[in-house]
Every structure is written in structure tokens, then in C-alpha cells.
Simulated assay, not measured.
Amino acid sequence: MQVSATPRVLLLNASMEPLCIVSVHRAVVLLMSGKAAVVEEGGVLHAEHLSLPLPVVLSLTRYVHVPVRRSVPPTRRTVLQRDGHRCAYCGGVADTVDHVLPRSRGGRHEWGNVVAACMRCNHRKADRLLHEIGWSLLFTPHAPRWSLAFGQAAARAEPAWSPYLAA
């Protein structure tokens, strides 16, 4: 098989809700075993005695119960993604994260206390509170929904996934 166009495939539950992103190899195994069907294709995969549609989006043929999803942890990547790579203090391009209530003052590493920040604002704020330096946040930090953390970057990377990752 020759795979060049799409190295990843969006896997949907039978209810059309996004489950995960799988490799093309895993997608072909699911197709061949009859566990999934192609929803959107992006070409053809050729083997010696077989041609298959190149899946971009797959749907499971049977519904799989998914337990309550764990929340996405606030990592540097996910915080920058949630905040659109914009500094919460000045609106410039963010390249790091900052704790609104500094950890040295009892602040926790949780979604409501971590924001994206540019290096300049992060150093100027240091371990002080916002009211001590007369600053305010441009937005209120919050925990993203799982589908947003999973979907926004993926939808930019693969536009065909956008309708399945919305809401």
C-alpha cells in the first residue's frame, strides 16, 4: 500500500461524535474487519490485489459506549491552543504560560489560573498579583471542552474534519 496524502484519520462513533484520530494503517484494519465505514475519502489506496478508498473520516459500524471523558490537562500546548496564542495581558503573541495567582502565593496549576502570556509580560508580572501592578486580564480563563481542545488544531490541519468536530 502506498500512503502519501493523509497520515491520520478521524474516527467517529456510530453516533457521529468524534472519538479519536487514528493512523491510516489502523483505519484500514478497521475497514477490512468491517468495524468501520468510510464517511469521507481522499483518494484510493492500492495494494497488489486490492484497492480501497483512502479514508479521511471513518465511522464505527456499532456504537461504542465511552465513559465520561477525563478533562484535558492544562499543559503549555493546550493553554496556548485555548488562548489562540495570544497574551492574556497585552494581546500580543504568546510563547509561554503564566499563573494568574502565582504558585508561590498558593495558586494552583488549573485551567482557571493558567493563561497564555508573552515572555515580556510574564517577566514583568513575575510573582505579583494583578491588582498589585494595576493589570487586568483580557478574558476570563476557563477549562475548554474536550472537543474544542481536540478539534480546533485538528480542523486546521485537516479541513475535511471541521463538520465533525464542530460543537
Rank of each mutant, 00 (worst) to 15 (best):
M1N: 06
M1S: 14
V3R: 06
S4H: 08
R8V: 14
L10P: 03
L11D: 01
E17I: 08
E17W: 04
P18S: 08
C20V: 05
C20S: 12
V22W: 02
V24T: 12
H25Q: 15
R26N: 14
V28P: 00
L30N: 02
L31C: 08
L31S: 06
S33W: 04
G34W: 09
A36G: 11
A37L: 09
V38A: 10
E41N: 06
G42Y: 07
G42D: 15
G43V: 03
G43L: 07
V44C: 09
L45H: 00
H46E: 00
E48T: 00
E48C: 00
P55N: 12
P55L: 13
V56C: 10
V56T: 11
V57N: 01
V57W: 01
S59K: 12
T61P: 04
R62K: 12
R62N: 12
R62I: 06
V66D: 06
P67T: 09
V68Q: 07
V72G: 02
V72H: 02
P74W: 01
T75A: 12
R76A: 15
L80K: 14
L80E: 15
R82S: 07
C87H: 02
Y89E: 02
C90Q: 10
A94S: 13
D95G: 15
T96A: 05
P102T: 09
S104W: 14
G106K: 08
G107D: 05
E110R: 10
N113V: 08
V114I: 15
A116C: 08
A117E: 05
C118H: 02
C118T: 12
N122Y: 03
N122F: 02
H123L: 13
H123N: 06
R124P: 00
K125V: 06
D127K: 09
H131A: 12
E132Y: 05
I133F: 08
I133Q: 05
I133L: 14
G134T: 04
G134H: 04
S136L: 09
S136T: 15
L138D: 14
H142K: 11
W146L: 03
L148S: 11
L148K: 05
L148V: 09
A149L: 13
G151P: 01
Q152A: 05
A153D: 14
A155N: 05
R156Q: 15
A157P: 02
E158R: 02
P159L: 03
P159I: 02
W161P: 00
A166G: 10
